[in-house]
């Protein structure tokens, strides 16, 4: 491995990592919102919304992000919907992640016994107040481990962004391998930068999970 080469590549990888992180975080933020909305619609059994949410969850969880992106980026412009690559990346990640986040929230909501909601209702709360003040705070603590796992999963999934010519880490690595045949250095930096992004999130996730387990509410 050539130190000089690695040093000269560093700025390229730094910019690429920044792009990965930025789009990744935006996509994850949207996926959390979509997931929460879908889980709430499923939980409250809102007539039409609940069925729509269920269908969406199945579709997003049973198709690969790469295909979703190809469709968004190359397919949609053909029917007149113009987008740019970055928007596609965020939208694709949000579409994929929304389904996974919804399932994570749902597992939390289902873990809270119905009697908790009834007890809130008997205190005169509305359905929404019961969900907001009583069920959701408890459900969230159950949902945190799967939510964190989804965050790591979605950050990993950003690696396919290069397919819609976003200059992320994969794109940079492939570019450098193709241009200069500096395979070893390029791959080394690729792994190093992904570890830099993913390891802290993954470790934070397991720490949080352990803390929650000790603090376990236990009725």
């Amino acid at each position: 491995m050539d130190r000089q080469v690695i040093l000269s590549y560093l700025p390229l990888y730094r910019d690429a990592a920044w792009l990965t992180l930025r789009l990744g975080c935006m996509g994850i933020a949207f996926s959390l919102l979509i997931g929460l909305a879908c889980a709430a619609a499923r939980y409250r059994k809102t007539p039409i919304l609940s069925a729509l949410a269920a269908a969406y969850i199945e579709v997003s969880r049973n198709t690969p992000l790469l295909i979703q992106l190809f469709f968004l980026y190359y397919g949609l412009p053909k029917i007149g919907i113009r987008t740019n690559a970055a928007a596609c990346g965020v939208a694709g990640l949000a579409f994929l992640g929304g389904g996974y986040m919804a399932e994570a929230f749902r597992s939390g909501l289902e873990a809270i016994p119905l009697s908790q909601k009834e007890s809130a209702l008997s205190l005169g709360m509305t359905e929404f107040q019961a969900l907001w003040h009583v069920v959701l705070p408890q459900a969230l603590s159950v949902s945190v481990p799967p939510l964190m796992a989804n965050v790591v999963f979605l950050l990993k999934e950003t690696s396919v962004f290069s397919a819609v010519s976003l200059m992320d880490l994969m794109f940079t690595a492939k570019d450098l391998i193709g241009l200069y045949y500096s395979t070893t250095e390029s791959l080394f930096l690729l792994v190093a930068f992904y570890l830099l992004i993913l390891l802290p999130v993954s470790v934070a996730g397991s720490l949080l999970e352990r803390r929650l387990r000790y603090a376990g509410f236990g009725v």
């Binding site: 790591v152 690696s159 994969m170 570890l195």
Partner: peptide, 10 residues
């Protein structure tokens, strides 16, 4: 922890 695409490249 590695994206599968990174593993494929490796």
């Amino acid at each position: 922890i590695m994206p599968q695409l990174v593993l494929l490249f490796l």
